[in-house]
Design a protein around this nucleic acid. Sequence first.
DNA 1: GTGAAAGCGCTAACAC
DNA 2: GTGTTAGCGCTTTCAC
Lengths: 335, 335
Amino acid sequence: MGMTIKEIAKLAGVSKSTVSRVINDAEHVSDKARKKVQQVIEETGYIPNSIAKDLKRNSTNSIGVIVPRINTSTISSAVEGISNIMYDNGYNLLLTNTRLDIKEEIKYLELLKEKRVSGILFFATELTSKHLETLNKIDLPVVVLGQDISEIVDFPCVIHDDFNSAKDIAKYLVKQGHQRIAYIGVQEYDIAVGQLRKKGYAEALTENNLEVPEEYLYKGDFSINSGYEGMKEIIESSRQLPTAVFAVTDSLALGAIKYLKERDYQVPEDISVVGIGNSDISSWITPELTTVDYDHLKAGEEASKILLKYITGDKFKGKLLMDYHIIERESVKKI
Amino acid sequence: MGMTIKEIAKLAGVSKSTVSRVINDAEHVSDKARKKVQQVIEETGYIPNSIAKDLKRNSTNSIGVIVPRINTSTISSAVEGISNIMYDNGYNLLLTNTRLDIKEEIKYLELLKEKRVSGILFFATELTSKHLETLNKIDLPVVVLGQDISEIVDFPCVIHDDFNSAKDIAKYLVKQGHQRIAYIGVQEYDIAVGQLRKKGYAEALTENNLEVPEEYLYKGDFSINSGYEGMKEIIESSRQLPTAVFAVTDSLALGAIKYLKERDYQVPEDISVVGIGNSDISSWITPELTTVDYDHLKAGEEASKILLKYITGDKFKGKLLMDYHIIERESVKKI
DNA sequence: GTGAAAGCGCTAACAC
DNA sequence: GTGTTAGCGCTTTCAC
């Protein structure tokens, strides 16, 4: 194993330089020499060592990706989009998975720097001051996905329009005649989902002079089960039942619907439900879920394009808000 | 940017070797020198260049992963399992995505060799002779996931027990009294899903002296929609309706159920449905799907452990069949 | 068109 | 305990 350029040179009866030129399709090589070298490479199955090349060039064609988990449809779709763009531009992906451990993010930021990646795509969750410190001294192009931190740190962010999309679909519910709209959300340490979507919901209701009793508000985690539990709690604790439920994710909406079905409430006849995300299954459950379409794959692609430009010195300022649109399906009744 | 060990040495008033020793927690460094070096590293924010280190040591702590797509729950779960084990053992993941393009697999095999990864985890789909040729000359530890090619190429394979699990769940259907069992599958170029699961289904029926009319057999792709279309075709073309449907994946089962609901067939009262895979949503749809549980995360973990041993010279022979078990839920009626 | 030589940033004998 | 030195495998001037 471990053929080197030197050995190839020897076998082909030329110098290392000539072999290098052949490998890199450079000019100034006679046909004869080129043929000979190619033949030797073919015979020996020589594969160049890109570590050495990278060291010499002082740059790798790798992009670091930091995710909190890989097996969610949101993230894996974004990573699919990232790989589309990056591979087309000759970059590889160094994937690091923090498994939801915030401290690991800092470790991976440094690890990727050690590996001398050309840039980093960072799926942010929660940002501590330690993060900002590390981010600021990393001295590497970074694009942040999923959270808007463009105000506190000088890196481009690619985010979904959580506030406006939440507000729009809440307004849609009001427009369909709903006045009592419950809320199933997540903890507020998650800015995008926990805070912004809730704010959109709240603002839509306030603007329509609608009040929300405390019993209509539930906060859990991101699991389907949390939607189930949330719906249960709302139903059990409400003196007057809501006519609609606003769930901050499709998974939560799915859990809510599950509970309603079990208790023989008809969706949407008795209670309407909306989600956010347009997940794969949202159109395959019964009733089909009315939701907001976020294009995660495209978000991954856009973030990649921004990073690529950033690497070449053309830095995008501020944040890119992704498009969204409401998908009307069957889970909302007009009353 | 680009601090080097040399500059740190100069600033700390010691030699490169001493700095190297400090970085690598080696012995034979005085407390005084160590303190001084650490201080300079802290002040300058120096981060070692692991490219240079890797070149010197002639090995990287990276593992190559080749997937046909990343945004499927099956694959992303396996990758999650892989990252669990690999990170715990100090390895990073170099992720390559062929986007279902078989030719890319060969390209990536070579790319990963160039990158001098320590080993490769290869999610195989279809294997051509060109693949085998590349695989054989790659001279790197490789573990294959998803397809059993342990007979044709000398690499460990980690696979689900497609044949037996399919046979078992088909037998389960028979045991519940079903005699007319339709089949919704995928093309046979996919050995594991297309051939093995079908064979399991067929054998279960034959052993019970059950015959299958041609109209009960449908082959599509892996999409939910394909399950929908398959169910439609079976219903429309059958003179006598089946009492049960065997779908080779949960997605296909989901599509089938969707169609049945739309046409007002009750599941399982009118027609029973089973899937394979125990996907996230299988327990959240109505009715909850009876299916076979495959633990993809664990498959990723097991494959990683095998690769790790392989790298240290301890090669696993043949194939590892993963456990499975039938999950009885609500989509099958006893008749 | 081709080769010799320097050097990318690091590690690891080896000498002191 | 510390520094000097010789590479790791490659690219890239610079001569010729």
